[in-house]
Amino acid sequence: MDIGQLEAFVVLSECLSVTRAAEQLYCTQPAVSIRIKKLEETLNTPLFERLNNRLHLTSQGVVYREYALQILNLLKQSREHMRQFDNPDSGTVNVGASHFCGVWLLPRIMADFKKTFPGVNIRLDISTTEKLSRKLAAHETDFIIISDYIDIDTKKYRLVNFLSDSFVLICPPDHWLAARQECSIREIQDETFLIKPAFSATRSFLLENLRRAGVEPERLRLVEIGSLEGIKQGVVYGLGISVVSRLAVEQEIRSGQIREIKLKEPLFLRGISYAHHRDKLLSPAAQNFLARLPALKS
């Protein structure tokens, strides 16, 4: 088995055409076929099959593709790490982040990082937790940045908390709550409450803590909005109230579009963490990026 065989397998598994695979690999079609045949002989299992004159991955091929991707990604990362030892201002940092972290936290860190290391490229992938977990497992990203309310296997991944994220109650300036400095979450049970739809980690966090505070979510008049930006705009226009991260509404609070009311309950606080493989050697560029995350506290 060699790297050329793995590359041919991955490319062919994506396009399922020997002709197109040869074009992408800049080689002949027989060369692609030979590489695949040798790889199958080494593994002693078929990776492709032809059904109705079309090429398909076998069940073994589907499983092996994940291993091949990890091997090629690790090889690519190892080469880049070696280059960075000679020149720290080079290479690429691959960051995965949840929507909240990617939109409201990381741009500030990225801007600061690029001032010191202008030659390092940053690739920020903002995605769902499920997709981020898959990419982390496949070594397609150096680390991910998520809220600590999201489950992650700490035996496999190192999880480091670097920021506390407090939630506040927000309402329009003309709402009866706007004159209050603080209130109990139980006082809003009869209000229209804006919240993200099902399967949102933030929604789960809010509903669980509402119950802990003695509020039954079933009593609230819920309006589901698919994005935090949509929830903020809903509050601005008087659609309802919500409980959101203060970090996400700082500009609207300063401009007077939204009023914040501190919650008496200490439950609405979550941590923000980064996670990476415990056995992964982070590149110098990735380490320098992570070293800047605590600056978000200031």
Rank of each mutant, 00 (worst) to 15 (best):
L194W: 02
S166D: 05
A213C: 09
S166C: 01
L228G: 15
I188P: 01
V168G: 02
S204P: 01
D190W: 09
T154I: 03
R219Q: 14
F199A: 12
R203A: 09
A201F: 11
N161D: 14
R211K: 11
L228A: 11
F199G: 08
L228S: 12
I145R: 07
S227Y: 07
L163Q: 04
I144V: 04
F167T: 01
G226Y: 08
D165K: 00
S227R: 02
S164M: 12
Q189D: 07
R186W: 07
R186I: 08
L169P: 00
C183H: 06
A178Y: 03
K196T: 06
I188M: 08
L210A: 08
C171D: 02
F193P: 10
R180S: 13
P172A: 09
A179L: 04
N209F: 04
L206F: 01
P197T: 02
D174T: 03
V168L: 06
D148N: 14
L163R: 05
Y149Q: 14
V168F: 10
R158M: 10
S227I: 04
S200R: 03
I152R: 02
I225L: 15
A198D: 15
L177G: 00
L207Y: 05
H175R: 07
G214A: 05
L222W: 09
I144M: 01
P173M: 05
I225H: 12
S147H: 00
G214C: 06
E182I: 01
P172Y: 09
F167N: 08
E208S: 12
S166P: 03
